[in-house]
Simulated assay, not measured.
Amino acid sequence: MEQSAPPRRITIVDVAEHANVSTTTVSKVLRNAYGVSPAMQAKVRKSMSDLGYRPHAAARGLRGRTYTIGLMLPDIRNPFFPEIIDGANEVLDATDYQILLGPARNVREIEHRVTEAMIDRSMDGLILIVPAATPTELEQTARAVPVVVVARHLRSTLLDTVVTDDVAGAALVVDHLADLGHRRIAHIAHAESQRHLVTTMPNTIRAEGYRQAMRARGLGDEIDVVATTYSKEGGYLGARQLLARSRRPTAIFAGADIAAMGALEAIADAGLSVPGDISVVGYDNTDFAALGGIGLTSVEQGGRQMGSDAARLLLERIDDRAKPSRLISLSPTLVVRRSSAPPPR
């Protein structure tokens, strides 16, 4: 018995004919490019739906686009990074682009492998969250594929950057606690051992912002920094060290909410209360900070906005590689909850 031929795949030409538009217009709709009215968008997408059109990633790759974007994140356990991903998806949902994640597990060698794998698979652009690569390595990557760097304080003519003003964010914390009457305000930082990262990573910028703010409030003699990691374990270890001081701090500023989680656990294990015995402030304003059982005062640095800005910048750079590089710096705010209060008498 003779087998019937497999059904022919619907192409962009079929969609253009069905919608009575040019293939260029269909291509613009697929890329969510400028110059297509909402009515035209709706018309073309209805034709795609009616015909059952599905973009062919492999074929598009041969033509120069795969409509995939690689997103590298250093730690999949940090609850702040999903907010960046959500923000990026809010922009990309209106396009045919799909995000593919590459966790680097806070290991520079893995980060390099992940980035190289994304380039080798012809992804149209990369969003790199707090990459540990050197500026030279990042520029080499940006020569191969459009790149937007998130939360790394660097400038380059070859890539775009989205950051939060981390100096201002740290000052918000110190000023809030000092206004409550605290003087012994300690900081849990993330240790940075690689020299090329010291001046550009958010953790070192926040630590320096903390020092500057303490001096500005006349508290330079009370500066106390414990460098561990931005993790629950790092926050626990840092708080344990601070609680062992002969003059225990009355407030702890953890450089990330996930570190603040560990600090809260260490304080409870020591038989102390928050904020009765010691205040705790985090950074990121992740979803868990607002939970009723926690109520963590935290710096809102706009994770979703960072993600949406990064996706928008990347789409524009994919369409125009010669575009001048841009740096977006968001202004943080402080969300005050019950974990911070005046120091005990």
Rank of each mutant, 00 (worst) to 15 (best):
Q3Y: 13
S4Q: 14
S4E: 14
A5G: 09
A5W: 09
R8N: 08
R9G: 10
R9M: 10
I10S: 07
V15S: 09
A16Q: 07
A16M: 06
H18L: 10
A19Y: 03
S22K: 06
T24N: 12
T25K: 01
V29L: 06
A33H: 10
A33Q: 07
Y34V: 15
S37Q: 07
K46N: 13
M48S: 01
G52S: 06
H56V: 01
T68Y: 12
G70K: 00
L71Y: 05
L71M: 15
L73P: 01
P74C: 01
D75M: 02
R77H: 14
F80I: 00
I84M: 14
G87E: 01
A88R: 04
N89D: 15
E90I: 04
D93E: 15
A94D: 15
I99K: 02
I99W: 03
V114L: 04
V114N: 04
M118E: 05
S122N: 14
M123D: 05
M123E: 06
D124W: 03
A133V: 01
T134V: 05
L138P: 08
Q140Y: 01
T141Y: 13
V145K: 01
V150H: 02
L154N: 04
R155L: 11
R155G: 09
L159V: 05
V162F: 03
V167N: 12
L172Y: 01
D175I: 08
D179K: 09
L180R: 05
G181L: 09
R184K: 14
I188G: 05
A189Y: 00
S193Q: 14
L197K: 00
V198E: 15
N203F: 13
E208V: 00
G209A: 00
A213H: 03
M214Q: 08
R217A: 11
T228V: 06
T229Y: 00
S231K: 03
E233W: 05
G235I: 04
Y236C: 02
S246F: 09
R247A: 15
F253Q: 03
G255S: 13
A256G: 09
I258P: 03
A260R: 05
A263H: 03
L264D: 07
A268V: 04
G271Q: 10
G271A: 11
V274G: 12
P275G: 02
N285Y: 03
D287F: 09
F288Q: 08
A289E: 00
I294N: 07
E300V: 07
E300N: 15
Q305Y: 04
S308W: 04
A310I: 10
A310K: 03
L314M: 07
R317C: 10
I318F: 10
I318G: 05
D319R: 13
P324E: 14
P324Q: 12
S325D: 08
I328N: 09
P332N: 07
L334A: 03
L334M: 05
V336P: 02
R337V: 04
S339M: 05
